[in-house]
Every structure is written in structure tokens, then in C-alpha cells.
Amino acid sequence: MQFATIQPTASRPDLPAITDEEAAALARATVNLFRAWQLTDLEARTLLGDMAQRTWARWKEGSIGRIDRDLRARMAILMGIHKGLRYLFSDPARGYAWIRKPNANFEGHSALDVMMRGEITDLIDLRSWLDAERGAW
């Protein structure tokens, strides 16, 4: 019996894939964002899906290598979080500081505490919360 080959399809064909050039730009922007958020190396690596210490060190030096699909998605979500904060806070410094402040909406935890649980869904949840706060629903 012969079976036809089924071609894989993108999970969201309505959304364009992040190109290699866009991924490299996202990586550079992520390094800059993490500096603004004053993250430790451990915090940064955790938000990037437990990135290897050597890889993170290379990124900080400007040497960006191959970036897989999951990491591209994480960075895109992080940029969405940044965008949401920029909408909510007219003073960028307040938005950068907000991620460490305890928040009653997160049972007294900070947004960073929520993100540091390490799952991509935690990043998605925070981005969705920020979108709802600014009235994007």
C-alpha cells in the first residue's frame, strides 16, 4: 500500500514567519531590553528558555548565531510585553521598573516573578494581561 506524502504546514499560516534577519534584530533588541530591565544573566537566560551561559555571553558581545523557532517566538512575545509597557507608561523608566514591583494582580508577585517561572505560556499570559490593561480586548 502506498501512502501520499503529507507536506507540513505552518501552525499559523496567516502569520508570516520571522526571517533570519528579523530574528537577529530581535536578539539585539532583546539584549538591549534586558539591559533596560536590569536583568541578571540568570534572569535573562531563563526568559530566553534556559539559554546556555556561553550563548548568552556571545549575544551580549553582539555575536548572534542560529535562532530556533521557539526562541524567535519568546523574543517576539517579550517585545510585545515591552510594547505594552510603553503604551501604559509614558515614562519609559517607569515601565522598566514596573516589571520588578510587587503587583496585587499577580498575588503580590512582580511581573518578572511571573515571567521567571520559565514557561513560554507565562510570557504569553503577561502579554495578554498588559494588552487587556490598555484596552486592546
Rank of each mutant, 00 (worst) to 15 (best):
residue 58 R to W: 03
residue 63 S to W: 10
residue 87 Y to T: 11
residue 77 I to D: 02
residue 39 L to F: 10
residue 46 T to V: 12
residue 27 A to Y: 04
residue 76 A to R: 05
residue 82 H to Q: 09
residue 41 D to R: 13
residue 100 R to H: 15
residue 81 I to V: 09
residue 66 R to Q: 08
residue 63 S to D: 11
residue 86 R to G: 12
residue 100 R to C: 13
residue 47 L to H: 01
residue 43 E to L: 03
residue 30 T to V: 09
residue 75 M to R: 05
residue 76 A to N: 03
residue 63 S to V: 14
residue 56 W to R: 02
residue 83 K to G: 05
residue 98 W to E: 11
residue 104 A to W: 04
residue 41 D to W: 07
residue 75 M to D: 03
residue 96 Y to H: 14
residue 79 M to P: 00
residue 88 L to D: 11
residue 81 I to R: 10
residue 36 A to D: 13
residue 34 F to K: 00
residue 75 M to L: 04
residue 64 I to E: 03
residue 70 D to F: 10
residue 89 F to I: 03
residue 57 A to K: 09
residue 102 P to A: 07
residue 88 L to N: 08
residue 35 R to A: 13
residue 18 I to L: 12
residue 96 Y to K: 02
residue 71 L to S: 12
residue 39 L to A: 10
residue 100 R to Y: 15
residue 36 A to W: 14
residue 23 A to K: 09
residue 70 D to R: 02
residue 79 M to G: 01
residue 103 N to Q: 06
residue 11 S to H: 11
residue 32 N to Q: 13
residue 103 N to K: 06
residue 18 I to T: 12
residue 59 W to Q: 01
residue 81 I to K: 04
residue 101 K to W: 10
residue 74 R to K: 00
residue 16 P to R: 13
residue 26 L to G: 05
residue 21 E to F: 12
residue 93 A to L: 12
residue 18 I to M: 06
residue 110 S to N: 07
residue 71 L to C: 05
residue 107 E to I: 10
residue 25 A to P: 00
residue 75 M to E: 01
residue 96 Y to V: 00
residue 94 R to F: 14
residue 45 R to I: 03
residue 81 I to D: 00
residue 99 I to L: 11
residue 62 G to E: 09
residue 105 N to D: 13
residue 89 F to Y: 15
residue 106 F to L: 14
residue 74 R to I: 01
residue 81 I to E: 04
residue 13 P to Y: 13
residue 89 F to G: 01
residue 85 L to S: 06
residue 71 L to I: 08
residue 100 R to T: 03
residue 14 D to E: 15
residue 83 K to Q: 09
residue 82 H to L: 04
residue 101 K to E: 08
residue 39 L to Y: 05
residue 95 G to I: 10
residue 68 D to C: 10
residue 51 M to D: 02
residue 54 R to G: 15
residue 58 R to P: 00
residue 20 D to F: 07
residue 23 A to I: 04
residue 52 A to R: 14
residue 44 A to G: 13
residue 11 S to E: 07
residue 37 W to F: 15
residue 62 G to C: 07
residue 82 H to E: 11
residue 108 G to P: 05
residue 61 E to Y: 04
residue 41 D to S: 11
residue 101 K to A: 13
residue 38 Q to S: 15
residue 87 Y to C: 06
residue 25 A to M: 07
residue 26 L to M: 14
residue 98 W to T: 05
residue 61 E to D: 10
residue 99 I to V: 10
residue 96 Y to M: 01
residue 74 R to T: 02
residue 32 N to W: 11
residue 85 L to E: 08
residue 16 P to K: 11
residue 70 D to W: 08
residue 43 E to Y: 08
residue 20 D to W: 01
residue 17 A to W: 04
residue 92 P to E: 12
residue 108 G to I: 08
residue 88 L to E: 14
residue 61 E to I: 00
residue 54 R to I: 07
residue 93 A to T: 12
